Simulated assay, not measured.
Amino acid sequence: MQFETLQKDMVAAMKARDKARKDAISSLVSDVKKAAIDAGTRDNIADDLVDQVILKSLKTAKEQLDTCPAERTDLKEEYQFRYDVIKEYAPAMMSDDEIRAFLQEKFADVIATKNKGAIMKEVMHALKGKADGKAINMIVAELCK
């Protein structure tokens, strides 16, 4: 995801007077800017950094939604809307079959050792932000049998 796309979508939401959508996108833009400053790349924000921030925000929004009391329907609707907006921008995650194929293609030599710790150390760095960690762990466990 490009940072400029987020900014353009925020402006479009402002023009459409869609306050809830604008607020959700605005928080993403703010989080990306903060992460870019922390990384020292304020002037040239990489797409990978934007994706990482979006995934982190998506996880936070999901936790908000999951921990919201059932009787607070107003908050639950607000959190659901925010989660849905962030999900639109989140990068697509790899499926289990794609993960398995990737691991067997790129990490066949490490998988042959059957050392789950060494495999996870190599694999997690390569798949960070591209696949769900739980799915990776499950597939690596299968491959180590």
Rank of each mutant, 00 (worst) to 15 (best):
V53A: 06
A70H: 08
V32E: 06
A46V: 06
Y89H: 03
L75H: 01
Q64Y: 14
A24Y: 05
E63F: 09
Q80W: 02
D23F: 09
R21Q: 11
Y79N: 04
Q52A: 15
V50Y: 10
A46I: 06
A35G: 02
I25S: 07
P69Q: 06
S30I: 04
K87L: 06
L28V: 14
L75K: 15
S27I: 06
S27W: 03
T67Y: 08
A90Q: 04
L49H: 09
T41E: 09
A35D: 02
K87T: 07
D74P: 00
S57W: 03
R21G: 00
S27C: 00
S27V: 06
I86R: 05
A70W: 03
I25L: 08
T41F: 01
K76S: 13
L49R: 10
D47L: 03
T60P: 00
R72D: 15
S27Q: 12
I45C: 05
K76I: 05
E78D: 12
D47E: 15
K87S: 13
L49I: 09
I54G: 08
K76G: 07
D47P: 02
V53N: 06
E88K: 12
L65V: 07
K62S: 10
D43P: 02
T73S: 10
V29T: 07
E77A: 15
T73Y: 01
D84S: 13
A36F: 04
E78A: 12
E71W: 08
K59I: 06
K34L: 13
A70D: 14
K22S: 15
I86F: 11
P69G: 08
S26L: 10
Y89C: 03
D51C: 09
K76F: 09
L65A: 05
L49F: 10
S27F: 09
S27G: 01
D47Y: 03
D31S: 15
T60V: 12
A36R: 07
L55K: 11
V85S: 01
C68P: 01
I86Y: 11
K76Y: 12
R72W: 09
D84P: 00
T60H: 11
G40V: 02
L28M: 15
Y79H: 06
T60K: 14
D66T: 05
A36W: 03
A61R: 07
K22C: 12
E77G: 01
R42N: 08
I25T: 04
Q64C: 10
L65F: 13
R42M: 12
K62T: 08
L55D: 09
S30F: 05
Q52G: 06
D84C: 03
K33V: 09
L55M: 13
R82D: 07
L55A: 07
S57D: 07
S30A: 09
R72A: 11
Q80P: 00
S30Q: 11
L65I: 04
T60G: 03
A46T: 15
K87N: 12
I54W: 07
E78G: 00
K56N: 13
I37E: 13
P69I: 04
Y83P: 04
Y79A: 03
E63Q: 13
Q64I: 00
S27K: 13
I54T: 05
S26P: 00
V29C: 14
I37N: 02
E77D: 14
C68Y: 02
L65S: 05
S26C: 03
D74M: 06
A90F: 01
I54N: 11
K34R: 14
D66P: 02
A90H: 04
E77Q: 14
S57F: 01
L55W: 10
Q80C: 00
I45H: 04
A46G: 07
K87Q: 12
D38A: 15
E78K: 14
A61K: 12
